[in-house]
Amino acid sequence: MKKQQQLYKGSLNAVIMRLLEQNGRMYGYEITQKVKELTVGEMNLTEGALYPALHKLESEGFLDVELERVDGRIRKYYKLTESGVKETNHLIEELDNFIKNMQSIVNLKLT
C-alpha cells in the first residue's frame, strides 16, 4: 500500500481542488473523510500531507480561507479563488491525459 500512497501524492493538489470545486468550501478534516469515502478507504489522506498542501495552494493564490466559529471553536474553511478554478481545470486535464497514457502503456498487448 505504501507505493500506492506515493502515486496518490503526485495528484494530491488535483484531488483537493476538485473536491473544493464540487463542494464549494470544506474544512481539512472534511476533505480527509471525503477522500476516504470516495476511494472506499484506499486513499488515506493524512493531516501531515493535507495541511502543507492546503497552505501551499493558499500561498499560491488558488485558495481563500474563511474562519467560522463552530461549537465554540474556530474552523478554517477553504474554497477556490477564481485562479484556483482555472488551475483545477488545468490539473484535471493534465491528470486525465496522464491516466490515458498510463492505460495505453499498461494495456499494451504483445504482438
Results as ranks from 00 to 15, higher is better:
Y78W: 09
K9I: 09
N107T: 04
F62I: 06
L91F: 05
Q103P: 07
E47Y: 14
N107K: 02
L57A: 02
K76Y: 13
N101H: 08
L54V: 02
R73L: 02
E42K: 07
Q22N: 12
M43F: 14
L7V: 14
R18Q: 13
E30A: 09
Y27D: 06
T81F: 04
H90A: 06
L108K: 13
Q5M: 09
T39P: 14
L63C: 02
E66H: 11
M1R: 05
T81Y: 04
G10L: 01
M26R: 03
N107P: 06
L63P: 10
L80V: 01
L12F: 13
E30Y: 12
Q22A: 13
L80I: 04
Y27E: 01
I16S: 02
G10K: 11
V70R: 09
K34G: 05
I105S: 06
S83R: 15
S83C: 13
L110C: 01
M17F: 09
V65M: 05
L12A: 07
A49Y: 10
Y77C: 02
D64H: 10
I74N: 09
Q103N: 07
T46L: 07
H55E: 11
G41Y: 07
L20A: 01
A49K: 10
K56C: 06
V35F: 09
K56Q: 11
L12V: 10
Y27S: 00
V106K: 12
V106I: 12
H90M: 09
Y78M: 05
N89H: 14
S11V: 05
N89R: 14
I99F: 11
T32R: 08
S11P: 07
P52C: 09
L91S: 01
A14V: 00
K109H: 14
L12D: 01
T88L: 00
E37R: 07
L80Q: 01
I92P: 04
I31D: 02
R75F: 10
T39E: 02
G48T: 06
L63E: 01
G84F: 04
T39Q: 00
G41L: 03
Y29R: 13
I99K: 04
E87L: 13
M1N: 12
K2Y: 15
D71G: 03
L63W: 10
H90P: 01
A49W: 12
Y77N: 00
H55T: 10
S11R: 12
Y29A: 07
N89V: 08
E58T: 08
L12I: 13
E94P: 05
E68P: 01
E93W: 15
M17P: 08
G28N: 04
I105N: 08
L110N: 04
K9S: 08
V40W: 13
D64K: 09
E68Q: 13
V40P: 03
K34F: 06
L80Y: 11
E68F: 11
K100E: 08
V106L: 15
K109L: 07
Y29D: 02
V35L: 06
V106Q: 06
H55D: 07
